[in-house]
Design a protein around this nucleic acid. Structure first.
Lengths: 170, 170
DNA sequence: CATAGAGTTCACGCAATTGTGAAACTAGTG
DNA sequence: CACTAGTTTCACAATTGCGTGAACTCTATG
């Protein structure tokens, strides 16, 4: 019944809550909905990386209904995973370890849509007009960006592996 | 008095408007406010790259007040430029040619804030805890991403130059 | 210095979002 | 098979955001 962070001293608990709110606000600035952002932040800041709906509700001081909505949203976007341990009645929610990597990759798919629309725009204004050239260059930019991001993420995975080995070796 | 696109046949005009709305909607999905997005799309799809407030209002079928608000927002973010030709009473608004490059670079600054908050989070939960390691890795990810993006944008500028020379040469 | 064109500001109202409480649903447990 | 813990769903209330109309400001022109 006690939340997973109950053992923490009061002061530290508050500090963690401050981090959660602050980080969630920044996610909101970046276009996220408030509650899903808070849930993700809470999960990230929990040792096990997993919490039940009730624990989330208590931690974030919101109703179970709000948690339910946020979690549904997150699982739809594959940003959180629901799991129920057999012989238990409560669901547990995880964040995937490479969450942010996936988010960035997902943003990339958005860029793809941009490129598609821009190409439609080029056809609409005419490809041999100043506007057409401007739109075409923008489309090219997003295309370029997308290809580059794939490689950046590949390099990240390498970099991360190196980091992890470094840590276990020290 | 006639808008800059009045000469276009009705059908093409409609097609351009469809592009504007579609592209603006995608920008909205990416976290933009609706009206600023529509203004940017309209400017991009105009040959001169510039329109007056009145022209924007007519093109987007909104009140001058709405245009004023959107444009103020855009100029605050340095995403549009206001200019008044001497001896004229009307302001003209431009989009910068490397608009999207700047937008992406700006997003990068957001990542910087993320990294900062995450580092605070590490301190809050303790750097030698599972949560601390998770937060630290996320911070490292954003840091990595930011450095990589600088290089990606450099490469884009090179790539763009090559493209432009190719076009003028053909 | 009066007039009129161009844009801005502000108070209002409509619409969309978001969180809540209460009831309903689901699945373990005795 | 009733009971109960845990979660979801739904209607509603509160908040926020966004565009409009009307009044206001600023500046070029006669």
């Amino acid at each position: 019944m006690a939340g997973p962070n109950t053992a923490w001293p009061e002061e530290q608990r508050e500090e963690v809550l401050r981090f959660i709110e602050r980080f969630a606000s920044q996610m909101a600035d970046a276009g996220w909905q408030r509650m899903p952002a808070r849930v993700v932040a809470a999960l990230m800041a929990t040792d096990s990386g997993a919490l039940t709906a009730a624990e989330l509700a208590e931690m974030l001081r919101v109703s179970p209904a709000a948690v339910s909505g946020a979690v549904r949203h997150l699982t739809r976007l594959h940003m959180a995973v629901r799991e129920r341990e057999p012989g238990s009645r409560r669901d547990v929610f995880y964040v995937r370890d490479d969450l942010w990597q996936d988010v960035i990759a997902g943003r990339d798919r958005l860029l793809d849509n941009f490129e598609e629309s821009l190409t439609m725009g080029v056809a609409a204004v005419g490809h041999d007009t100043p506007a057409g050239r401007r739109l075409a260059e923008s489309a090219e930019f997003f295309s370029f960006l997308q290809k580059e991001m794939v490689e950046v993420l590949d390099r990240w995975r390498e970099h991360r592996e190196a980091l992890r080995e470094g840590h276990s070796g020290s």
